[in-house]
Simulated assay, not measured.
Amino acid sequence: MDRRIQKSRQAIMDAFMKLMSEKDFESITINQIAEEANVNRGTVYLHFTDKYDLRDQCMEVQFNQLLRSCMPEEGMVFTSKTALLRTFEHLEQHASFYYVMLTSKGNTVFRDRMETVIQQSLNDHLDSIGLDKELNKDITVQFLISAGVGLLEWWITRSMPFPVSVMVEQFWQLLERLQLQSDELPNRSKKNLGNKAHYT
Rank of each mutant, 00 (worst) to 15 (best):
Q6R: 05
I12F: 10
T116E: 15
T49R: 07
R86M: 11
M17I: 08
D56C: 02
M160G: 00
Q179R: 12
T157D: 08
D53H: 06
K133D: 03
N136G: 14
Q170F: 07
H125L: 13
R55A: 08
Q142M: 05
H198I: 15
Q65V: 11
S21P: 01
I139K: 12
V109P: 10
P186T: 07
M17P: 00
K7C: 08
E169D: 11
H90I: 06
M59K: 07
Q6H: 08
R55I: 00
Q170M: 13
I12H: 11
V141K: 01
F16S: 02
Q170N: 08
L174N: 02
V117N: 05
I118F: 09
T116N: 10
N38C: 11
K137C: 09
P163M: 03
K137G: 04
G75E: 04
L85V: 10
R111W: 08
Y98K: 01
T49Y: 01
W155S: 00
Q142A: 09
T116K: 09
L175Y: 15
F16E: 04
R86K: 15
C70V: 14
Q32D: 09
E73M: 11
Q62E: 11
Q142V: 09
S27V: 02
V100Q: 06
F25T: 01
I5A: 08
M13H: 06
Q119L: 12
L91C: 01
Q173I: 13
D124K: 15
G106C: 08
R111T: 10
Q179F: 02
Q57L: 02
F162V: 11
D138Q: 13
T29I: 03
E153W: 13
Q173T: 12
M167Y: 03
G130C: 12
Q181W: 10
R9T: 03
A147G: 05
D50P: 14
L152N: 03
R177D: 08
A147W: 12
R113D: 14
V141W: 01
A83W: 12
M114R: 07
E22M: 14
V44E: 01
L174Q: 04
L54W: 00
L54T: 04
C70D: 07
S21N: 07
Y45W: 10
L185D: 08
I33F: 12
E73I: 12
V164D: 02
W155G: 00
Q120C: 07
A197L: 13
R188H: 00
P163I: 02
V166W: 01
S189G: 10
S146H: 09
P161M: 14
W172N: 11
S182I: 04
N31M: 15
L135V: 02
E89D: 15
T79M: 08
M114P: 05
D127W: 05
R177Y: 14
H125N: 07
S27N: 06
L84T: 03
A37M: 11
E26W: 10
T157C: 14
N107R: 04
F97M: 00
R68W: 03
M160H: 05
I118P: 01
I28T: 05
L122I: 01
Q119F: 07
M160V: 03
T49M: 05
